[in-house]
């Protein structure tokens, strides 16, 4: 049904990444996003991607098949992006090869490749994070670690939990409207109408449920005190702190090197 893989959800497991606390993983996600962000040169971007993939396979125990299933769509989009950009951007640098009367140059094609791969990498990092971090652990750690008020963190977690239900709901609404003989309209105006007709029933239902949910939470004393106990929390330990510090250092060093022009992250134009 709708929640079998069509939506990126947490998958329970026992890998080192699963056992790592959410804050460290969050730091990791941000660190690798920043590393990927700073690079417009092909070999560096490849390096970042390779490291991310290795982490996924070794520490996340991802299976190749699952990772492909989760990212193939993006892979194709990125390849398309690379091809188109190579054609359309102004050429510079030595010619790599010629195709369809177009000269592909190291700098331009390299740039296109790096940007395309960057998109894929950032997506990949998000996937690794979501698949290995339970929403509750995330909510708990941003409450304890980042001092986000627990009412907000928990409400967000609850809303996330509702996603699979909402997706089923959306499928049902679409089916119901199909039974009514409703087609999908085109154009911006049509798209707006489609959206409204999808969102209103979806929200009516979700908000009706939210009313019950809020009553259920408050009748169990949710929000009665400024703090609450969290049982079985995956807290940041020495290992997590060390990893976070190392990642931070890596990002800082990376950007300092870039800033001092010691390493080049852009092709010189």
């Amino acid at each position: 049904m709708a929640h079998d893989g069509s939506f990126l959800q947490y998958r329970s497991g026992n890998s080192p990444l699963h056992k790592l606390d959410p804050l460290t993983k969050l730091a990791g996600m941000l660190a690798f996003s920043f590393l990927a962000f700073g690079t417009y040169i092909a070999w560096m971007q490849s390096l970042v991607t390779l490291v991310v993939l290795l982490i996924a396979f070794i520490f996340g125990r991802f299976r190749v098949r699952d990772l492909i299933a989760a990212t193939w769509f993006f892979g194709i989009a990125c390849v398309g992006f690379i091809v188109i950009q190579s054609f359309t951007l102004p050429s510079s640098g030595p010619v790599l090869f010629r195709l369809f009367g177009h000269s592909f140059t190291t700098n331009t094609t390299g740039y296109a490749y790096a940007v395309g791969l960057r998109i894929y990498t950032i997506y990949l990092v998000s996937i690794i994070f979501i698949r290995t971090t339970s929403p509750r652990d995330l909510a708990v750690s941003i409450t304890e670690g980042l001092k986000v008020p627990y009412r907000i963190a928990y409400s967000f977690f609850v809303a996330m939990r509702m996603i699979p239900l909402m997706q089923e709901e959306m499928a049902v609404i679409r089916a119901a409207q199909q039974v009514r003989g409703m087609g999908r309209r085109k154009g911006i105006r049509g798209q707006l109408q489609n959206l409204r007709q999808l969102m209103l029933p979806l929200l009516v239902r979700s908000m009706r449920e939210a009313g019950t949910l809020v009553h259920s939470m408050e009748s169990r004393a949710f929000g009665a005190f400024p703090t609450r106990t969290f049982t079985d929390v995956n807290r940041m330990k020495t290992k997590g702190k060390a990893i976070t510090l190392a990642l931070l250092a890596l990002v800082v060093v990376w950007y300092v090197l870039v800033g001092l022009n010691i390493i080049h992250t852009q092709y010189i134009q």
Partner: peptide, 29 residues
């Protein structure tokens, strides 16, 4: 709490419906 949950649901629904939108945008670009 009701207001917080309303905001959370609106944000999450917007986010879930927005992701395909973003993919579409990515294709366009």
């Amino acid at each position: 709490l009701m207001e917080i949950v309303i905001m959370a649901i609106l944000g999450v629904v917007n986010g879930v419906l927005g992701t395909p939108n973003a993919m579409f945008g990515r294709f366009l670009m």
